[in-house]
């Protein structure tokens, strides 16, 4: 699970990434995980609080990957990031999907992002499914219903 804000605990990036595995009494390949999310391995000994928010969000993805998940849930993972950091996270998501076969479930209010990333789009309104499309069928910008729900305006 990846949240809107990275919420990293731990004194070093390494400690942060190992939080999940250590709860299970196991270990993980920190260098490999940092490589997988495109972070320099020298960051392992740094205080995560000193990194940029984009880097922190990558650390939080590495922290989730450390548990070897098949599905990653992401709740607005880029809404706290600037454009270039957002682009890099999106590239990373595509890359992990292609290379590692990871499935992502991403909650987003950013229709352009949905069109860039999604293979399948589900519109949720007040906890209920209000629509479902394949990427080819989905035309978020064109649909009045989707725009209204996503923008939150009546």
């Amino acid at each position: 699970m990846i949240f809107q804000l990275p919420a990293l605990s731990g004194e070093t990036v390494e400690e942060t990434v190992l939080y999940g595995p250590r709860l299970l009494g196991s270990d993980a390949d920190v260098a490999g995980l940092l490589g997988a999310v495109g972070l320099d391995q020298e960051l392992a000994s740094r205080d995560p609080g000193g990194l940029s928010v984009g880097q922190q969000q990558r650390v939080s993805i590495a922290r989730a990957l450390a548990l070897g998940p098949e599905v990653l849930l992401m709740d607005e993972p880029t809404s706290a990031l600037d454009e270039s950091a957002r682009d890099r996270i999106e590239l990373l998501v595509k890359d992990l999907n292609r290379r590692e076969g990871l499935t992502f479930v991403i909650v987003s209010h950013d229709l352009a992002q949905v069109e860039r990333l999604a293979d399948r789009v589900v519109l949720v309104d007040a906890g209920r499914v209000a629509g479902e499309w394949d990427r080819e069928e989905f035309d978020g910008g064109g649909s009045e219903k989707v725009r209204r729900l996503v923008s939150g305006r009546p």
Partner: peptide, 20 residues
Amino acid sequence: RPYIEASLALGATSRQAVAP
């Protein structure tokens, strides 16, 4: 709260999540 939720999502029990 975000830290607690992150810890829970990584498999921590409530006790482990509130330890700090």
